Each structure stands twice: as C-alpha cells, then as structure tokens.
Simulated assay, not measured.
Amino acid sequence: MKKVLFMIPTLKGGGAEKILIDLLQQFDLNEWSVNLLVLFKNNVYQDQIPSGVTLRQSHISQFRGNIHAMKLTTPQQLYRLLVKTDYDTVISFLEGPTTRIVAGCLNPNTRLINWVHNEFHELSKLGSSYRSIEELQQTYQRFDQTVFVSQTARQALLSLIDLPEEKTKVLYNPLDMKQVLKHVAVDKKIPLTTEQPIKLITIGRLSYQKGYDRLLPIMAKLIHEDGLRVTLDILGVGENLNKLKKQVLNLDLAATVNFLGFVKQPYTHLAQADMFVCSSRYEGYSTVVTEATLLGLPVVTTDCSGMSEILQDTGVITANQEEALYRGLKKVLSDRKLLAELRIKAQQRGQQLSNQDNAIEIINFLREVSS
C-alpha cells in the first residue's frame, strides 16, 4: 500500500482547499494510505474530509507574524517536528509555508511534490515564507516534481525559477462532477425583457486577489449611469468583508448586491444565476469558473491564468483592468440575445469539460511518481 501525505496551510474555504477535498474523495483506500496534515487551525472544510483519510493537525494558531516566527527554524527541523514519520510521497498542496517545510524532508526514498495554484510574475510574491529569495529558489529545486494547475501558471514560474522541464507537470484541477452536474439547468432561459433584472454571481474569498473592490464600482456604474437592471450575489468570506460592505453602502448598492457568506455547496446558487463574473487580479486555474461552465453559465472574467484553457472561445475574457471589465460586462448585459448565445456556448463547453476525468490523471501521476 502506497503511503501519501498531503500538507496544506489551512482548510479555511479557498479554492485550493476545495480542490484537495474533491481529490481526496477519489482515492482507492485499498491501494493508498492517505494522510492529510493541516498546518494552521482554521478549517471550514474539515467535516468534508472523506472517512478513511487520516487527518493530522499541528495545532499551530494562525496569527500575524507566525510565518516570520517559523522562518527562525530550518525546514529540516520543521519537517521533523511536524511530519515525524516516513511516507512514500509527501505533497505540499499549496505554495507557502508548507512548501518550505516539505522541502526539509531528508529521506532519499520519499518523493516530494510541490503543487502551484497561482500565477506568479515576481518572486517577492512567493517570498514571505522564506528567509531570502535564494532560499526560495533552493526550496523549489528540492522537489522531484512541481505540478502546475495551468499552462500559464507553469510558464510564469519557469520564467523566474530554473526548473528542469522533466520535473514539471501541468494537471488540471479535479472536480466532483456528479455533485456539480446534478444542478445543471438545461432549460433555463435568459430574461429577455429589460424589466427583469439579470442575476450575476461571483464566488471567492473576500480578499484583494479576487478584485471585488473594483467590481463594486463597476456595478454602480452599470446600474446608476447606464440604467441596467442587474443584481449581484457574492458568496464567500474573508478579511475584506467589512470594507466591501461599507463600499456597497457608499455606492448605493444595498438593494442590488448581496453578501451570502460561505456556502459549502454553491451549485444551486450558480444554477439559478444568469451569468458568472470573475474580477480576480490573479488566479491559477479557477475552480468556480470551471463549475459555472459545467453548469452552462456564461462567464465574463478578467484575463487570469487558466481562463483561456477553461473557457476557450465560450466566454468573455477582458484585460485585467477595471475599465476593461466594465466594458465587457456592459457589452453582454446590454444585449440579452448575446447573453443567451453565450449560454448555449457555455453549455457546449460544459459538456466537453464533463467528459474529462482530471482526478484519474492526477492519481495515475502520483502512482507513477510513488513507484
């Protein structure tokens, strides 16, 4: 039986955390001993960990400055302190402190894998968990394989860190297809009269990365200046909630923008919406955009890593700027026939995506690495 350990900073409700939960459900526990080590205590998804997966928690509290404190200890010391036992394969499933810790494994028989979920164009964006940029580069070179969730994420990091091509792999995120596809609304019609508001939805952590601080002024412009009838549901939690709520009040959007909090299974909300909007400043390979497309939902998004790979020619991808996203949304929202056409294209692309089994590809890759 192959013994694998996944390590992740938290299970606090982000995209990578949800992807990991979906992936863990796909392992054959007659073949694999699957273990999960969560570094910090903040675990929204803990009750969704499949039975049979051994959960280990370090019980380190997440507080301002603890990443800096961890840098006082070497990766080797942290690995011995936290991991303690031997595994065939150890995986850091999200870039950050767990990457540094896993690189501290000194067992030559253990395969080390680093999963990169975001697109990075500056090493400083990755550097907060490391003593120096030099240590960061040495850490990434310690891994037997580095997995990227999109081609663009791979290209970006390889422009910054010299990794052998044979030690890199692109593997798209797995999804619980059955759970998503139960909510497909094949016969849903786009409201064609201007009296009916178009219902937008977006899902993500309420953080700088997701760009909701620039989506809200766009909503105000569409509603108050352009006279468009549109509403927006925002699903997610995060550190910017209070700031965003104040922004909603200041922009006179209280009647049209709704904060729905964290929703474990957002598929019903997605299926009931008319369009998905992504305002992110950066992504890796967006789980929620993939889920929206699987459900046949038209997508308007900023140009982030993985978007062209997910959508191909079925959605609207704008430049990653507030004005460009505004123009893209206005174009679609002003032409309801165009919105209906985009739904048909999204349904067709959703059918293609539903035939992919990314989880099997990932497990086959892990089987090969572990052998």
Rank of each mutant, 00 (worst) to 15 (best):
Q348R: 05
Q352S: 14
Y212V: 00
N43H: 09
K331F: 00
V248N: 02
M275N: 07
T139K: 03
T268E: 12
P97R: 05
L249S: 12
K264Q: 13
E239N: 04
Y87L: 03
H59P: 09
L157E: 05
R214M: 02
T302A: 06
K2L: 10
N30E: 10
K189F: 10
T193V: 14
F262R: 05
E95R: 03
G52K: 03
T193D: 15
L24Y: 12
G227Y: 06
L106V: 09
F6V: 10
D335W: 03
L136Q: 08
S61M: 15
A103M: 09
Q352G: 04
D22K: 02
R229C: 03
N107L: 01
E134S: 13
G96I: 11
Q196E: 14
L11G: 09
L136D: 06
S92E: 11
I362S: 08
K41T: 09
F276P: 11
S159C: 08
A16F: 09
Q137L: 05
L175C: 15
L158D: 03
P50I: 11
N355C: 08
L339Y: 02
I362N: 07
T290Y: 09
K125F: 03
V332G: 07
F259I: 02
N109Y: 05
K264D: 08
A273Y: 10
Q209P: 07
L338A: 15
L94Q: 12
V369L: 10
V277N: 07
V53P: 08
I101G: 14
N66Y: 00
A273W: 08
S128V: 00
I8T: 08
T10S: 00
D226P: 02
H59M: 12
Y285A: 08
S371L: 11
R80P: 00
A156D: 14
N35F: 09
I201W: 01
S280G: 11
T74K: 09
R343N: 04
N364V: 07
W115F: 11
L72H: 12
N242D: 07
V180Q: 05
L158H: 04
W32E: 02
L72Y: 12
V38T: 05
L325C: 11
D144T: 05
R229N: 12
Y172N: 15
H68V: 02
K18D: 03
V90T: 13
S92P: 07
P217G: 00
L181N: 14
E341D: 11
I218C: 10
L366M: 15
K264M: 13
L228H: 09
E17S: 10
K245N: 00
K71P: 13
E291K: 13
L329D: 02
A16S: 15
N114I: 07
G350D: 15
N30T: 09
V289L: 11
C278N: 12
V316P: 05
K41I: 03
D303Y: 04
